[in-house]
Amino acid sequence: MSGSIWVLAEHWRGQLSESTYELLALGREIADGLGVELQAVLLGHGAADLAKGLGKANSVLSVDHSSLCEPVPEACAAALVQLIKERRPRSVLVPLTNISMGVGTLVSTAVKVPAANFCRDVRVVDGGLQATCVLYGGKIEATVTMGAECSILGIWPGARAAENGRSDVVPPVEPVTVSLPEAPRVRFKRYIEPEAGDVDITQQDTLVAVGRGMQGQANLALAEELAEVLGGAVCGSRPVIDQGWLPLSRQVGKSGVSVKPKLYLAAGISGAPEHVEGMKNAALIIAVNTDPRAPIFNVAHYGILADALEVLPALTEAVRGKKG
């Protein structure tokens, strides 16, 4: 249907991603607000069965092509571009995850339509779309208007609750054919699984998470000591992993893992959206940071405006005292 809202149904290793359901929930709101249909676009190879999980949409456009076997951004974008040119949707919602990150930008550039990135919300205002976009590590939000023409919206994980995008309804599926290059310029070779043997932070009840505010690898001993007395483990945010202070298996967030411990103590972590995505569902979040406007305080239950290097040793001592 022309003018409908589309959601790119992201899937990986045989499963629809949580982001897909989040986007379906958001897309449903937008489509209902505009009085148009919501369509999911399923790109893959041998993945057509996943369409039955997309019942929040009115219908599914299903593309099966050998080049779409693994999520190669160029191939996904090329397929989407062909569909958009043929059918002119009102707007396309694309997840901003490691799987689909560049797809939205590639598509908007090829089709020559506006794109808004880092959207945490999209609303229908006077028949047009307005998006709220998270900039500068969550310190600034920009409200942008997309007008009435076709647009591509890159949606941050967490824009809506995933459960609101699930449905038991099996949607009608329309198989669609696209033409993709016989010899792609980017070719998937193999997956590299995480190294076994390290602590599985998804199984820990207590996590002491460290960020750039720890100032140096040597200071991670303070977090290790606290984790030990609490019976937990140490994990970290992206910059800590990139600096080589902790292995990739300890990374929480967009590229790492999502955790739901009983206690998540964030030490020197600013709370960029990419990190919050992976820890926001912890039962108890305590954050220590010197910046009163650090976004981590917006998701934490308790906050301490202080230097983590001073608070961690004091807390270790207090926990030891409490345990006797």
Binding site: E141, V144, R293, P295, N298, A314, L315, E317, A318
Partner: peptide, 27 residues
């Protein structure tokens, strides 16, 4: 091509309950 209507510092719907004091008191 985007038209920015406004920029703002986000006002969170929720905020942590802040614990005050020196490190020992906070601990």
């Amino acid at each position: 091509q985007l038209e920015i209507l406004q920029m703002a510092k986000p006002e969170p719907a929720e905020h942590a309950e802040m614990l005050a004091g020196d490190p020992a008191q906070v601990a």
